[in-house]
Amino acid sequence: MSESLDLHLALAETELENPVLPYLRQDRIPHIWCPGCGIGTSVNCFCRALTDSGLDLDKVAIVSGIGCTGRTAGYLNLDSFHTTHGRAIPFATGLKLGNPDLNVVVYSGDGDLFAIGGNHFFHAARRNMDILVICVNNFTYGMTGGQVAPTTPVGPTQTTMPLGNFESPFNLPFIADACGATYVSRWTVYHVRQLAKAMKEALNKKGFRFIEVMSPCPTLYSRRNRLGDGVDQVKYYKENSVIKNGADTKDIGLGYQGEIVVGKFVDRERATWLESMNDHFSKVLGDQFKPYGGKPEGV
């Protein structure tokens, strides 16, 4: 054992660099996420997707709300904005409309995006605001200590549902689909290659794009409900996931430890908010209107 350990120490000092490190603010690593938390895995996939996307990273901005996943913005070596609870999407809307050259990604959790921030999600999707929303769904409020979330399935215990949750959860892809998103997929952190590919695909697409990433919260969800550690949850994802690309989103709600339908469900074209505005004003105002886009003038 020790021979192999020595070898790795010797190699690690001099040779290759972990390919994701350039995407991270390395002076902030190790991160705050618990052992076995899947958020880091999703970020890892996102970094690979950034490489594969071929995008100019100076033009990619990341916006997070509050919560465990909300800390993502702070670890990525991009223009990054850690905003207020639930308001990542409207901030991203302002950033995108302020400079349409930016590729704006919202990276946040289920509580942030669908409880306190639910209204903003619906409207940004309805408008087809040109942003990518990545929701790490761990079925609970992690940062505050394991309270019931709008995604918590019926059954498991949460600190504010001490006798088990009796509220029905949201089916996130169904919401995104119904509100008009141009791209909707769901993967778990077991599906790392598919997830990285989906992120890459979504980064290079226009319109309101949504990816749900199922991820374990070992500290406050799995262990409390005797579901084992993070890795046990990921094994459950592995054993119970069914890939159904193009599935009808209304049929893919998640139950407690039941079947998980993953895949790409929606991929369609629709004019973005800004395209619609430019088209409309050009028609109505003719030469009096110069299509809006690019940086603010004089800057």
Partner: peptide
């Protein structure tokens, strides 16, 4: 809520 944070996104875009 959205208006008062969207404007701040606009500021950071310049």
């Amino acid at each position: 809520l959205a208006a008062s944070i969207a404007i701040q996104g606009g500021v950071w875009a310049g």
